[in-house]
């Protein structure tokens, strides 16, 4: 399989924790500009896969390449984030004692060393970027609210906004609609589809209605490796998928 033209390339990746194989010979390829939904029962290794891509966990074996050329196993979280991989956590994580605007300001692409941050003055360009993102994530009227005072769904959007502020090439989005109302879920699907026009996106999600709404290729993980891959209709018609979801 050729790495060129791919944004994310995992081949034969395995990792175990205390003898438990969380990821088992996993291979997954994402093309540039593609959006992919990843489903799978609890413990299938979805979050561990994201940990490996973002440098939080080092794989025991296998290849992990970003953009066809960068070996991600050699870099740490901050490096990988700077290369252009943004990650949204399963539990929405924003800076609760900062305003929505400051949350985005801290995430904006730019130098990441201490002294420039000490003497930083907000530029007109940055203000414009923040306004743009606030428009995209539909939080324009909440810009002065503290992160802690946002609703669950708004925190999810703010976190997605923080990823966008980094101007990443690839977004990893872990359970973006967990705990959202139906209306919020629809809005989020629209938001992610918008983002996918200009970015590569990996979405991990349990909610099948949401995955259907996204209308993209689906990969089903089970026990740390790929069980089935294709359209949602194809995957959900697969007997093995039905089996792992419903049990024997």
């Amino acid at each position: 399989m050729s790495k060129s033209g791919t944004i994310l390339y995992l081949d034969g990746v395995s990792v175990s924790f205390d003898g438990f194989r969380a990821i088992n010979n996993l291979s997954l390829v994402l093309d540039r500009g593609e959006m992919r939904a990843i489903i799978g029962p609890n413990g299938a290794g979805k979050t561990t896969m994201m940990d490996i891509v973002t440098g939080k966990t080092k794989p025991d074996s296998g290849e992990v390449y970003f953009n066809g050329e960068i070996d991600l196993t050699r870099h740490d979280e901050a490096d990988i984030a700077m290369m252009g991989i943004g990650r949204k956590f399963q539990k929405p994580t924003v800076f609760e004692s900062h305003t929505v605007e400051d949350n985005l300001m801290l995430s904006l692409k730019g130098p990441r060393s201490i002294f420039p941050a000490l003497f930083h003055r907000k530029t007109a360009d940055e203000a414009r970027r923040i306004d743009d993102i606030l428009g995209i994530i539909r939080l324009g009227d909440k810009r002065h609210m503290l992160g802690a005072n946002l609703s669950h769904g708004q925190k999810q959007w703010l976190e997605i906004g923080m990823l966008l502020a980094q101007d990443p090439k690839l977004l990893l989005v872990d359970e973006p609609v967990a705990g959202m109302t139906d209306a919020e879920t629809e809005e989020t699907a629209r938001l992610l589809k918008d983002i996918a026009k200009t970015h590569s996106v990996v979405v991990v999600e349990h909610d099948m209605h949401f995955v259907r709404e996204l209308g993209v290729k689906v990969t089903c993980l089970h026990e740390g490796s790929v069980l089935s891959e294709g359209t949602l209709d194809f995957v959900s018609a697969d007997d093995r998928v039905v089996e792992v979801y419903l049990g024997r």
Binding site: V94, F119, Q166
Partner: peptide, 22 residues
């Protein structure tokens, strides 16, 4: 300063700061 905001951000959500590149 922006650094001060970052300091508070690290206090509240250290891993988040790491995953946005700090």
């Amino acid at each position: 300063s922006k650094y001060g905001k970052l300091l508070i951000a690290v206090r509240d959500a250290e891993s988040r700061t790491r995953f946005i590149g700090w």
